[in-house]
Structure formats: C-alpha cells, structure tokens
Computed example of a mutant assay.
Amino acid sequence: MAAETQLQTETRSTEGDTRRQVMLLLLKEGPITASNLGTQLGLSAAGVRRHLDILVEDGLTEVVNRRPQPKNGQSAGRGRPAKHFRLTDKGRSQFGHTYDELASEALDTLREVGGSEAVKKFAILRMERLLADIEPLVGENESVVDTARKLAAALDDNGYAATIHEAGHGVQVCQHHCPVARVAEQHPELCEAEQEVFSALLGTHVQPLASIADGHGICTTNIPLTPITNNSDERSRA
C-alpha cells in the first residue's frame, strides 16, 4: 500500500514537472502545434495532448487555428487549419512577475528624493483617480451611506473586493483584498492616503479599524453616522 502511494505521488510530481515544461515552451515559442511540442520535449502524441487538454480545461492554454505555411513557393492549399496552442493571460501569470518589487523600489526612490510627504502625495493622487467618479459630500441633504456605497462599489471595481454593512452607529467599508498590500507593508503612506481621501469624500472623520498590510485578513474602515459624545463632559455641564 505504501509503495502504491509513493508511486502515485511520484507520478503526480512527474506530470507536474512535465506540464511546467510544456507551459514554458508555449511561453517561449507559442503558438505551437502539439506535434512540435512533443518532438521538442520527447513526448508521445497522446502524452502531449493529455497535458494540453488539462491546460485548456484549466484555462491556462487556448487553441489557435492557423493554416499551414507554404513551402518552396507552393500555395498553402485549402486543408484544415493547423491547430496551434498558446498560453492565455492566466497561463502567463503562472510564471510570476516583479510588479510589487518594482513599485516598492520606485516609492523608495521617491522617498529618498522628496521624503515621506512626496510618497503621501503620490498615494493621495492615485486614490483620487480610482475614486474620481464619486462626488464629495457637501450638503446636509446628501446621504453619507449612499456616498459610502458608491465608494465601496468603486473600490470593488478596482480589485479591492469591497463590501459595506451597518455597524452600531455607523457603517463599515470592508476590503477583502488589497492589490497593493505587499507594497503598503513597506509604505504605510498608501493606507494613510486612502483614509484621507475617504474622509474628504464623505465629509466626516473615518476610523481605520484593521488593515491587510498590518497582517489582518481584511481592511475595515468605520464611518460614524452620529457624533460621539463624551459622557463625562455631559455630566460636567449638567
């Protein structure tokens, strides 16, 4: 039984490595035919098709139909287009990127040149652009809750997976994902700017309760709907 389990594990590992090689070749040379893939990787036709079928099913690879290229001045003919394969955007993303590192290095340089305030100004301008379609609250007849809902919807559209719900004497905007969390860990000005822009749009002070950049699973911003009174001050005035 143990030997069978080990064999299954080794098979899965080998298949994973082979599939990675298939994807790497697609990345370098795609679109490419299954037969060409098999030749370069030393796989049988059935073997390479099995891997390609799985990759297509997972949305990592897609089929592109191309007619055979003419040879020696001959016409390409009217045969069935050759089936080529290439990586999808999802497939390409499996090879990773260094956007977070690049952004962090850029902000490090900005801090060296202009200090923390320069980073803060950049962060504020960025958040203002994301929320540019939201009109700031300026009158008593306007609803803080409605504006907060628009704010959450705009954040959601930009990849923050935002929701809003009532909580006590206020509402809370919750961001279940942060596209710049890793950068914000090194540059807290991003979170500070976000709160300032929220406050400016809502016309009221907001309370950051939790942050993904600080290790929490969610970013939570509380928006009070009624003034918070101090009981001791009320007793002293009585």
Results as ranks from 00 to 15, higher is better:
117 E>Q: 15
182 R>S: 08
57 E>R: 14
183 V>P: 07
17 D>S: 08
123 A>K: 07
68 P>M: 01
26 L>P: 06
78 R>T: 09
234 E>M: 14
46 A>R: 15
202 L>D: 09
51 H>R: 15
165 H>I: 06
109 T>V: 12
186 Q>G: 06
72 N>S: 10
199 S>F: 02
188 P>D: 03
197 V>Q: 02
81 P>L: 07
170 G>I: 02
100 D>Q: 15
210 A>H: 07
94 Q>I: 05
40 Q>G: 04
137 L>N: 03
54 I>C: 04
37 L>M: 12
50 R>S: 12
213 A>S: 14
186 Q>E: 08
36 N>D: 05
52 L>R: 11
187 H>V: 04
60 L>T: 08
154 A>S: 10
116 S>R: 13
104 S>D: 11
141 N>F: 06
132 A>W: 05
163 T>L: 04
117 E>L: 13
203 G>W: 01
190 L>Q: 14
218 I>T: 10
27 L>S: 09
231 N>Q: 09
102 L>I: 08
39 T>F: 07
124 I>C: 08
10 E>S: 12
66 R>K: 15
133 D>E: 10
225 L>W: 01
212 I>C: 00
42 G>A: 00
178 C>W: 01
94 Q>L: 12
130 L>N: 05
221 T>R: 05
13 S>Q: 09
68 P>S: 14
166 E>G: 12
193 A>Q: 03
208 P>I: 01
209 L>T: 12
44 S>Q: 08
13 S>M: 09
29 E>P: 06
70 P>C: 00
22 V>S: 11
105 E>V: 07
93 S>N: 11
14 T>H: 06
93 S>P: 04
165 H>V: 13
63 V>A: 13
179 P>K: 02
45 A>V: 09
127 M>T: 12
126 R>T: 06
29 E>Y: 01
